[in-house]
Design a protein around this nucleic acid. Structure first.
Length: 966
RNA sequence: GGGCCCGUAGCUCAGUUGGUUAGAGCGUCUGCUUGACACGCAGAAGGUCACAGAUUCGAGUUCUGUCGGGCCCACCA
């Protein structure tokens, strides 16, 4: 039976069809099975902030490649999918929409309502993200999908917090946050942008107590004087040395503060060399305050007005206070002038107002011991990084052991399980008697109890006299992400999944979250479970745009994977992702807009970025369109371009090539009969392709084991295209016409294609499955050396392992020689633009001659050769193009066809190159040091080279002489 | 300021432990509608491996420095 396939591979049809098929068969669902080896990856959960981008496509393709490969190897594979609630980012997106669409703030809605809105957003985007992952072909166990805020993860978060609290690892402390006075909330570092504004640089004086002296200092924020608790100078600064330890008075609030020496804070060459220190309102001053145990005076209310610590200025807006402070200092004669100055000021991304550093109460995790265990896990090799160098990023960061601030002033996230109460401890002991799920500690600063509980506590649990109040903050998103590898497997329950798949096998991620995420997973894994969360960490490169900049929504230089899937197919996308994943280089991906009118690719220019260009005219059809990007809404007047990159042509072409190789087979399978082959009896070309397949398989396996993805893609591509298609399939054509040879070559063709499909499945599962299924209909029993019934899907087909004994370098050399001979004829043909068969004469050893004559039918067919003569005595024809190799001299007869002068010129050029090369080789051998010190085989190689070159030069010279005689 | 990565063909990138004359894809040029594939086939052109030193018999590969690009962290009264 033969079957006809369409001329082009249609990815769309294949994707829909096989996704359904795989899901119906449940290939991706896994259950613990002690009789099989486990392999497990937990997905880095994408944020539910928005849709997936190309970086996710890379990250998830690589994971899927590993998962699909290990599944074929027979491991019991679990790929755990899920998404992350991404506290700040998601709340910010929803709040922005609220502002834009309803002109409301979160305070208008209230906590409960806002959180509900975010859940709706999450439902919508989670669905979209999981759909995108599925479309990418990700073979996740969808039945196990988790979300960092779902009850199972919440239970893990609670348990961890509670245990850490009881162990004294969680404490309450002060920290400077970025305060947005307009929205009255803390803002994360990555939600801040810096803008240069026109500001002032004021210089004032404080009187030094007990002397006539003054100390001068400058500031850009005079109102912070109200919160000064010291003036710092450099310890080596001769101007001020005598003042260190003396007190100065802040006249406005009549407070005495010391002059201190601080070499870290103060640069004596800047300003006056003296610095006012406001620990509660400046990050550097805060550090300095910690070093010197200075009081920290907060002078601001949450709305940016001056609080009761500001004395006479209480109640004034901070900018008003700035003016008044300056005026009052001037009145006192302590104002020494003001300069204009450009100030690089932090602004809130959301309210666009300027940020105030603000001291607030926060929760922290003590890092000292936790960090040490996580460092040990890497130094003693329990966790290995690929590439290795990233271990250093991890160790350097953990080495600082800075305590982890885990509270966030947000509404979206895991609420901090702490309740406050003011009551006698006896009350607590009475109410919580016998409960081991409640723990409390005294908050000495505020004179109240901090009560931590595994389950929510009702506010009236202590009775009406002592109401409980829950901490309003939520936990840092990374707190729940840190538990991901064990929380998704069911911890704190002792589930069979946890016992079987934990520690997971490998974590695949990009380098920017080694510290934020990877390090913390190791810490909490060791703390909660007592085992590392994964054995390997593979760090992949980042995808950049054509200008080397990272892709982002705000720049508008990102690519939606779905645009690529639609235009090139999922397999093309996946192939490129794998191909681009090299060890050292980030991957540059020039982005183009696809003209919606004429489908021309219009490259994005740098000036188009950041949504600066709203309209582009297509250079081809001259019609206007809007460039692709995260536009808030469709433009009724201007069609929006999809984005693309011609880089994906490679993947699409490869999928199509494979498809057509299969198509060729199907057109030639009439009469196929499965039967065992006897390797020793196979002709050269069969043994060659099987040798190459065995080598390729071994190489790919090894490359996958060491996470060299790019090499995997290249190895498979080269074998399939340049060896199987270009040579073996071409050679098979003649044999397929020969009834005596047809059946055998069919078996080998089918066997090799079967092997290619298995190798390619992890990378390009859709085209592989399409061909596999077609093959199952026409050649259900197949494979070399002995055919077997094929599995129902390539997804669950065993990974190929071909016998080492098939690897035959002699065979590869022999075919290599034939290829060189053929290429030389083709080169001549092209150079002289000849169409007819050419006669070829080869001077070579008897052994090589025998080979060439065996392969003569292929040489004739592939090079268009008429007469072929080989042997030691072969005479050179009168007029000929010459190709000389170390092993043979090849003459393509061109009697009457060529210009002898042209051929002569070409040979002379060749001769010059050979002579030059010979001289270099001789010079090397003439160097006594080389002969003495280089290894013997290298020296011998060089001697052989000289001999070869001499032979070749002699042959070319002979030929030149003949040409001259014409 | 600390750390890491990169600089190889017009473009995007390979190049295992140092060892003949440095590779691929795209693009360019030439010739092909050849019964799998023009998303293709056959060929060609195209490189001072950023620069300067050092180590070595031998360096794209190791070391030092310089220049250029990028990322992370710290910092910028």
């Amino acid at each position: 039976m033969t079957m006809e396939l369409p001329k082009h591979y249609d990815p769309r049809d294949a994707q829909a069809r096989w996704l359904r098929f795989w899901n119906e068969r449940g290939f991706f669902h896994a259950r613990p099975d002690p009789n099989r080896q486990p392999f497990c990856i937990v997905i880095p959960p994408p944020n539910v902030t928005g849709a997936l981008h190309l970086g996710h496509a890379l990250n998830n393709t690589l994971q899927d490649v590993l998962i699909r490969w290990r599944r074929m190897q027979g491991y019991n594979v679990l790929w755990m999918p899920g998404t992350d609630h991404a506290g700040i980012a998601t709340q910010a997106v929803v709040e922005r929409r609220l502002r834009e669409e309803e002109k409301k703030t979160r305070h208008d809605l209230g906590r409960c309502e806002l959180v509900q809105r975010i859940w709706q957003w999450k439902d919508q985007y989670e669905k979209r993200i999981l759909g995108q992952l599925s479309e990418l072909g990700c073979s996740c166990d969808w039945q196990r999908t988790r979300f960092t805020l779902d009850p199972i993860c919440a239970r893990a978060v609670r348990t961890t917090f509670f245990t850490m609290f009881k162990d004294g690892l969680i404490y309450r402390g002060k920290r400077l946050v970025n305060w947005d006075t307009q929205l009255q909330t803390a803002v994360a570092d990555d939600e801040i942008y810096h803008e240069t504004i026109k500001g002032g640089f004021w210089t004032f004086r404080y009187p030094v107590k007990g002397t006539d002296e003054f100390i001068r200092f400058s500031t850009t924020r005079p109102e912070t004087m109200l919160g000064d608790t010291a003036v710092a100078v450099h310890p080596d600064d001769e101007r001020y040395k005598h003042l260190i330890g003396k007190m100065v008075t802040i006249p406005l609030v009549n407070r005495d503060i010391p002059i201190i020496a601080d070499g870290q804070l103060v640069d004596p060459t800047l300003g006056t060399g003296a610095v006012k220190v406001t620990p509660a309102h400046d990050p550097n001053d805060y550090q300095c305050g910690q070093r010197h145990s200075l009081p920290m005076i907060n002078i601001l209310n949450p709305d940016g007005t001056i609080n009761e610590n500001g004395g006479p200025y209480t109640g004034l807006d901070r900018f008003k206070a700035r003016e008044r402070v300056t005026e009052d200092m001037e009145k006192l004669g302590l104002f020494d002038g003001r300069e204009d100055r450009d100030i690089d000021l932090a602004h809130s991304d959301r309210s666009k107002s300027s940020i105030e550093p603000y001291l607030s109460d926060q929760w922290f995790v003590k890092m000292a011991d936790l960090a040490q265990t996580a460092m040990d896990a890497v130094t003693d090799g329990q966790v290995k990084f690929f590439p290795e160098r990233y271990a250093r990023t991890y160790l350097d960061w953990l080495g600082e052991k800075r305590d982890w601030c885990i509270s966030r002033q947000l509404w979206w996230g895991h609420r901090i399980p702490i309740w406050y109460a003011r009551c006698p401890e006896a009350e607590l002991k009475r109410v919580f008697a016998g409960r081991d799920d409640v723990s409390w500690r005294l908050d000495e600063d505020n004179g109240r109890w901090l009560i931590c509980a595994l389950e929510d506590l009702p506010s009236d649990i202590l009775g009406p006299k002592y109401p409980l109040e829950q901490d309003p903050d939520v936990l840092d998103t990374w707190f729940s992400s840190a538990l991901w590898p064990h929380s998704t497997l069911g911890w704190p329950e002792r589930t069979p999944e946890l016992a079987y798949w934990y520690p997971t096998s490998v974590l695949v991620t990009s380098r920017d979250i080694i510290t934020l995420w990877v390090a913390r997973m190791v810490m909490t894994g060791l703390y909660n479970v007592g085992k590392v969360p994964f054995h390997h960490v593979y760090i992949h490169p980042k995808i950049l745009d054509g200008f080397g900049e990272s892709m982002s929504k705000s720049k508008g230089n990102g690519i939606d994977p779905l645009d690529i899937i639609e235009r090139y197919g999922t397999d093309a996308l996946r192939f490129l992702m794998v191909h681009q994943a090299t060890e050292t280089q980030d991957s540059k991906m020039p982005v183009a807009n696809v003209c919606p009118h004429c489908d021309t690719l219009v490259p994005i220019k740098q000036e188009h970025m950041y949504m600066r260009t709203r309209k582009v005219t297509c250079p081809n059809c001259k019609k206007p369109f809007r460039p692709g990007g995260p536009w808030p809404a469709p433009d009724p007047d201007l069609p929006t371009a999809k984005q693309a990159s011609e880089r994906f042509d490679m993947g699409r072409n490869f999928a199509n090539k494979l498809w057509n190789a299969a198509r060729f087979l199907f057109l030639n399978l009439e009469g196929y009969k499965p039967e065992a082959i006897r390797h020793q009896e196979l002709p050269i070309e069969d043994r060659w392709i099987l040798s190459r397949l065995a080598t390729t398989t071994a190489a790919v396996t090894q490359q996958l084991e060491s996470y060299r993805f790019s090499e995997v893609a290249r190895t498979i591509y080269d074998f399939t295209w340049s060896e199987f298609c270009d040579w073996y399939v071409e050679m098979s054509k003649r044999r397929l016409q020969d009834p005596a040879a047809r059946q055998l070559v069919q078996r080998v063709l089918v066997g090799v294609l079967d092997g290619i499909l298995r190798l390619v499945q992890p990378i390009m599962p859709f085209v592989a499955e399409s061909i596999w299924q077609a093959l199952n209909e026409t050649a259900f029993e197949r494979g070399v050396p002995s055919p077997e019934p094929a599995p129902e899907s390539v997804v669950i087909a065993p990974w190929p392992s071909l016998t080492e004994s098939w690897r035959d370098t002699a065979m590869e050399t022999r075919i290599g020689r034939m290829q060189e001979l053929i290429r030389a004829v083709r080169e001549v043909r092209n150079r002289y633009n000849l169409k007819m068969d050419l006669d070829v004469f080869v001077r070579c050893s008897d052994a090589i001659a025998e080979d060439f004559l065996t392969l003569a039918p292929f040489i004739a067919a592939l090079a268009g050769v008429g007469q072929l003569e080989c042997g030691p005595q072969t005479a050179k024809p009168r007029q000929a193009a010459t190709h000389v190799t170390p092993e043979f001299e090849e003459y393509v007869s061109l009697e009457g066809l060529i210009d002898p002068a042209a051929e002569k010129a070409r040979l002379e050029k060749q001769l010059a190159e050979k002579v030059k090369h010979l001289q270099a080789a001789r010079a090397k051998l003439g160097n006594a040091n080389f002969v003495e010190r280089a290894p013997a085989d290298v020296v011998q190689q060089q001697r052989d080279l000289v001999a070869d070159l001499q032979n070749q030069i002699r042959a070319i010279e002979d030929n030149l002489r003949d040409l001259s005689q014409e």
